[in-house]
């Protein structure tokens, strides 16, 4: 479309064919934007409706036609949700798990990924195959033996169970290995000649060079842990240990007709992810483009 346009504007002789081509180009362009905007609305309207409903009285949530901007916004909905259930506890639990698991995952994965990408050792390819193969097996296939193992270790209903299960993923190793491999060997060899040990190279060359990759894994991992539902559902039973997603579900079940409050709680649960996503969305996109795999 674009080439057609430039060709048209470049050609000095404004023939009939060229001008009709130009018009067709403009129409397509307008249609493209209309479509793009309609699709953007389709993606965002549920969230906008959520925000709008969260500021209404329950009885007004389903009033039709939709009042997108409530005339009398019920800001106290956002105060009420914190008192109905221990929402703050859930947020803090999620925060704790997110920080610990993400840190452990980035640290151990980058360490292992360095060896897989840049060191030559016995059994490397076989071991890497085991890592890769495990990514293809749905977690649900082995969740029961995992649960039994955790029960034997007496870790069920403790945060430690989720930390141990989610901190050492094959996904993190795979993602970072893909990035590390693209770092030229010449740089590392030069450092070796200068007498730097492999640990030195990892800390002083590899890590600084792969900040985008580390950021990508950090964000993937943080979003995964924050949004995880099935893991906490299986392992966390005490109310004082539950995470935000479990808390949200609990809220929905206990106050199923408090529509506005449910929407307010849902929106609050989205805030950290939205902030993280908007701040680092370029890493998301690059990360997926590079590996195509999700956590």
């Amino acid at each position: 479309m674009d080439t057609q346009l430039t060709q048209t504007s470049l050609s000095k002789s404004a023939t009939r064919a060229a001008s009709s081509g130009f018009r067709r180009g403009t129409i397509t362009k307008v249609l493209t934007y209309v479509l793009l905007i309609a699709l953007a609305a389709l993606m965002l309207l549920p969230f906008i409706w959520m925000a709008s409903a969260s500021l209404k009285l329950d009885k007004d949530v389903f009033r039709f036609p939709i009042e997108w901007i409530p005339q009398d916004p019920q800001w106290e909905n956002y105060r009420t949700i914190w008192t109905r259930i221990p929402f703050m506890t859930f947020v803090m639990n999620s925060l704790k798990l997110t920080v610990i698991i993400t840190f452990l995952q980035v640290a151990t994965s980058s360490f292992a990924a360095y060896a897989f990408a840049k060191l030559d050792f016995r059994g490397r390819d076989l071991l890497f195959l085991a890592y890769l193969g495990s990514i293809a097996i749905p977690w649900q296939v082995y969740m029961i033996p995992q649960f039994i193992l955790m029960r034997e270790l007496d870790l069920v209903d403790k945060h430690m169970s989720l930390i141990l299960l989610q901190a050492f993923t094959a996904f993190g190793v795979f993602l970072l290995r893909q990035f590390f491999i693209s770092v030229p060997n010449e740089i590392l060899d030069a450092a070796r000649i200068d007498g730097l040990s492999e640990y030195g190279i990892y800390f002083r060359i590899m890590l600084p060079l792969s900040k985008p990759a580390l950021a990508t894994l950090t964000i993937f991992s943080a979003v995964f842990v924050w949004n995880d539902f099935m893991g906490p559902l299986i392992y966390l039973h005490s109310e004082s240990l539950k995470t935000i997603q479990l808390g949200l579900r609990m809220f929905i079940q206990q106050y199923s007709t408090d529509y506005a409050l449910i929407m307010a709680a849902s929106l609050v649960s989205l805030v950290p992810v939205v902030v993280l996503f908007l701040a680092f969305q370029r890493f998301f996109v690059e990360g997926i483009g590079t590996t195509g795999i999700k956590g």
Binding site: A112, Y114, R124, A130, S134, Y142, P145, F168, V173, Y199
Partner: peptide, 26 residues
């Protein structure tokens, strides 16, 4: 080899115990 294993070990230990073993048992 030993240097390489030392890089892998922290992750491998957790991965083997909490992923590979359960896969084998499932």
């Amino acid at each position: 080899n030993l240097v390489a294993y030392s890089f892998i070990l922290p992750n491998l230990l957790g991965f083997a115990i909490f992923t590979l073993v359960p896969i084998a048992f499932s």
